[in-house]
Design a protein around this nucleic acid. Sequence first.
RNA 1: GCUCCCGUAGUCUAGUCCGGUCAAGGAUAUCGGGCCUUCGACCCGACAACGUGGGUUCGAAUCCCGCCGGGAGCACCA
Length: 473
Amino acid sequence: MVLRMAPFPSGGLHIGSARMIFVNDYYRTRYRGKLLLVFDDTIGSEEKRIDLALFDVILRDLEIAGATPDAVYYKSDRIPLFYPWARRVIDRGGAYVCRCPAELLRENRAKGQACGERAQTPGQTVDEWEKMLAGGYAQGEAVLRLRTDLHDPDPAFRDRVLFRISDLDHPRVGHRYRVWPLLEFSWAVDDIELGITHVIRGKDLVMEDRMQEHLWGLLGLHGPPFLHWGLLRLREAKISKSKSYLEVKSGQYDGWADPRTWSIASLDRRGISPEAMRKFTLSFGLSLADIEVPAETLYAENRAIIDATTPRRAFVEDPVRVDVDEYPPGLEHVPLANHPEQEHLGRREVAAGPGFWLPRADLARSAGAEVRLKDLMNIRLPPDIPAGAAGVRATFTTRENRKLPRLQWVGVEGAVPVDLLGLEGEHRSGIGEGALAQAGPRDIYQFERVGFVRVEADWRPGTGPVRVVFGHP
RNA sequence: GCUCCCGUAGUCUAGUCCGGUCAAGGAUAUCGGGCCUUCGACCCGACAACGUGGGUUCGAAUCCCGCCGGGAGCACCA
């Protein structure tokens, strides 16, 4: 079994590409086949530009996803290979060189009308084709078109363009070629040349199946069967690839791993395991319906994978200093379990009061009430807590574990500043318990009552606030 | 407008090819309860679906036809 993925290098791989990645990889693994990555970097268009930096971004995304290809090809290296194939199609009368403007071509297609050029003999087409290749036509002046039935019931199928002329500068091969194949033709050739046995691709390309089969029929060949999947979207990820591209390029976004892109890399950065992405994606099968799934479903998948192995830590957002009067002796430090159920994850010694940091939002809600500092003690808060209060004095009540509102807390001693990057790209500052000072890059923690977070890959102890990215609740 | 594809609970999905074992299973969400010192986990329970109309049949989610709804294509993009 030989499969292929064919992304266009105009953006990082996003969650919508997940089906391409995981479905293909699933079959490769299951049938011990090969999975090729073929960059579909024919020249594109003015609107759809190739970005050199994106080849590596995509490669890296596939690595993250655990779907490293067995081989990598660049369509732009293979252009000369397509010319002899074009010649074979022409010789069989399957194509003609058309000099109609795009506008006229479109109108004729809609009406099922032939233009004057269509009557060309293969001999005349060869001459015109040679002229195209030799530079005898300017960009947009001539194309090689497939000859189908002009009255084909599907207007989309009538006399499609196979090759066109482009003077755009290609980031890999520059101006080495002027006559470029379109996706359909290049794949009619490469699915044969590369020995692809099964084509699994998006349903936006179903019409291309017919074109490839038409070409194969013309040449007496048999190509691989086609399978398709429908569009997959996360409800929260409204952003398009091209919009992301602009934001990343302009620096509005923090690269392709910015949480707002919902790219594979961004999910990884947030601590969502590739395994969760895989299970999530494969759970949809190969359905042809376009689906929109809440990110919560992906989060649930991830929780099931990471919850049991993820240590708990205290984080207090927008902290207010609270000093507790009548603080009981001997509670300056307490041992806490790293995980409520997984004892093998051990314990850590946590600095407690009498000075604490508590979340401003919780304090505002609980003024005058007795609250429980989780795992520690109960305190009574003063009746009045001004909105901008810098410090608050509270009073110890009991240690008895009663049903009280529970707050997480951070003891003042050894507390470390934390910068939490949120899903909208916002930075939430807070303070974390001392144990976080020894966090390692890419470590995953659960901030109790906040959610799962992952330490930034480039963070090192002693370099300022602990930088983490919010994953999910 | 033309062509193709898709319609099972809020969402996603199993079942449809080969009609009965489907008074439709699972996941997620929601609601209620329990439990662990998290708003997380776990346990128990509840809610909730075959788009619609006809036909075939002893029997239809499943086969046929119409309609309705949704998506994609009709680029010298991929």
